[in-house]
């Protein structure tokens, strides 16, 4: 019966037996590490989202649980002139501010990417509007836009553009109010564009610009043929982030105009808040914020597809 191995005492082949180490299995470890993330996602994203959908298909109000009403809330929105204005405002607001943020941010990034004295300090300084809490900055801006006491009107008066006591009613006129909140959004958003695009610029080897200069490309041509296409992937990601942020913007409008005058500056988020919390029509508010979802989803899908195309080029 004795095998060859057993017949040699102490000299046989030993097959090493692994100890039981459950966490060394990749599957087990992965589950364990994913658990906190899954829990957080469920709690803070999935649940509120489902809750929002549930609210939107009932007729809940503050203090009233409400009954299932199907798509009645959405049908009402289609006939709501304020909602029409909200859709228009949001698209206008997002489009105009993003374009300006991109142009100004790119300009700033190109400047900051050059070599000059106090470069590090200036770069940090540029970030200030981004660091200041938005609400505080908005209060400061609100005061600057004030028709009577505003520093803007004071400057216009000193420059002789307006007469005494006839200052521009920045936040009191519908179009000017829209312009004002756009200015604040651009002011706040430019640093993000500038810093991100500058980071993108720094990944472009300066040799390429030099090679192009030797190849005979003038500065504008170098930008158009070399820098801009190479920066495109970063630009697209930055624009994507910004569009999502701007489309669902709330703080600036809420603090500066509250959606007024006469609903002229309402965006999705502020109108949803006003209906749901301000007026207590929880379901209608939920329907407004949910209506933002398919629109934003469409924009994001379109941009992601474009980014993929740019990156695999």
């Amino acid at each position: 019966m004795a095998t060859t191995e057993m017949s040699v005492p102490g000299g046989g082949i030993i097959v090493g037996k692994p100890k039981w180490r459950p966490l060394e299995s990749e599957g087990n470890l992965a589950m364990l590490l994913l658990l906190p993330t899954i829990a957080l996602l469920l709690m803070f994203i999935a649940y509120p989202f489902m809750r929002g959908i549930l609210l939107a298909v009932t007729n809940s109000k503050v203090g009233v649980i409400g009954d299932f009403v199907g798509f009645e809330n959405f049908a009402r929105l289609l006939k709501d002139p304020i909602f029409h204005a909200v859709v228009y405002n949001t698209f206008l607001y997002t489009f105009v501010t993003t374009v300006f943020k991109l142009i100004l941010g790119l300009w700033l990034a190109l400047l900051l990417n050059r070599d000059f004295k106090f470069k590090a300090f200036t770069r940090a300084f540029i970030l200030l509007p981004f660091i200041v809490p938005t609400v505080l900055a908005c209060f400061a801006w609100k005061w600057m836009f004030d028709p009577t006491f505003s520093v803007l009107n004071w400057m216009l008066f000193k420059l002789g553009v307006v007469a005494a006591g006839a200052g521009v009613n920045w936040l009191g006129d519908g179009d000017l109010a829209m312009l004002s909140i756009m200015i604040v959004n651009i002011w706040r958003g430019v640093p993000f564009f500038a810093i991100s695009l500058m980071a993108g610029l720094q990944t472009i080897s300066p040799d390429l610009g030099e090679a192009a200069a030797i190849d005979g490309a003038k500065p504008l041509q170098r930008f158009w043929y070399i820098t801009w296409p190479l920066l495109m992937p970063v630009t697209m990601v930055v624009v994507l982030f910004s569009v999502i942020q701007t489309f669902s913007d709330f703080q600036i409008v809420y603090v500066m105009t509250g959606g007024g005058p006469a609903n002229a500056t309402h965006l999705f988020a502020t109108y949803a808040y006003q209906l749901g919390v301000g007026t207590g029509l929880l379901s209608q508010g939920a329907a407004v914020s949910l209506a933002m979802f398919p629109l934003l989803f469409g924009i994001v899908i379109f941009q992601l597809m474009y980014i993929r195309r740019v990156e695999t080029r």
Binding site: S205, D207, L208, E210, A211, A212, I214, Y225, I226
Partner: peptide, 10 residues
Amino acid sequence: AMVFQNYALY
């Protein structure tokens, strides 16, 4: 015309 160390191809 110049040839760079890291090629500097576009």
